[in-house]
């Protein structure tokens, strides 16, 4: 008797597509972990606009290892650090960048996303979000090394929610270490990108 009943259970669960509606409070209807309210910022970056950005090499979802100093040979680089996969704000922020892709192209900039999650987790999460157009890098091991280089590793081992714009000389042109509980305003980032064009 167990098999048919488990079959019914299984097909019932499978018939529920988890990604068809975004709730008002959680714009992506994923199996989201609710971290609750966190200290807005839990680190103090030593980096400042006008300084050279630390170089790094990280594995990406595409299977390539990505080095910052190689990327900036072609375009300016926007780095979006987000604290963790499968959490509410991060799962809104990155899909929003999918819609804003033309603004990055116009600014001759590329976007890369970094979290301290491992690649399998990042793969599952981004697939569930419908994919993202930009490279996603894993700062999992040595854990948070790049986040620490940028001075944005929180004491619990995840990164801040932070944006850096690095020009083709490798110089940091924009820093926003944002309140981890809030989505960074898209208009501020795009305005910073437009400034980069001038």
């Amino acid at each position: 008797m167990a098999f048919p009943t488990l079959f019914i259970l299984g097909t019932t669960i499978m018939s529920c597509n988890p990604q068809v509606m975004c709730t008002i409070s959680e714009p992506v209807d994923l199996p989201i972990f609710q971290p609750g309210y966190l200290d807005p910022v839990d680190s103090q970056t030593h980096l400042k606009v006008g300084q050279k950005a630390p170089d790094f090499l990280l594995p990406s979802l595409s299977g390539e290892e990505v080095r910052l100093s190689e990327l900036i040979k072609d375009k300016a680089v926007v780095i979006t650090f987000v604290p963790a996969a499968w959490t509410p704000i991060c799962s809104e922020q990155w899909p929003g960048y999918n819609v804003a892709e033309p603004f990055f192209e116009e600014a001759n900039a590329i976007l890369i996303g970094i979290t301290v999650d491992n690649l399998p987790t990042l793969h599952a999460w981004t697939e569930e979000m419908g994919g993202v157009w930009f490279e996603v890098l894993s700062d999992f091991y040595p854990h948070g090394k790049v986040a620490a280089q940028f001075g944005i590793l929180r004491s619990v081992g995840m990164s801040e929610r932070a944006l850096f714009i690095i020009d083709q000389e490798g110089i940091i042109q924009y820093i926003d270490v944002h309140d981890i509980n809030e989505r960074p305003p898209l208009d501020e980032l795009i305005h910073a990108l437009e400034t980069l064009k001038k």
């Binding site: 975004c22 992506v28 209807d29 809104e92 899909p95 929003g96 999918n98 979000m129 419908g130």
Partner: peptide, 10 residues
């Protein structure tokens, strides 16, 4: 709809 909503984009 909402800019940040994947289902809305779809």
């Amino acid at each position: 709809f909402d800019l940040y909503c994947v289902a809305c984009q779809q």
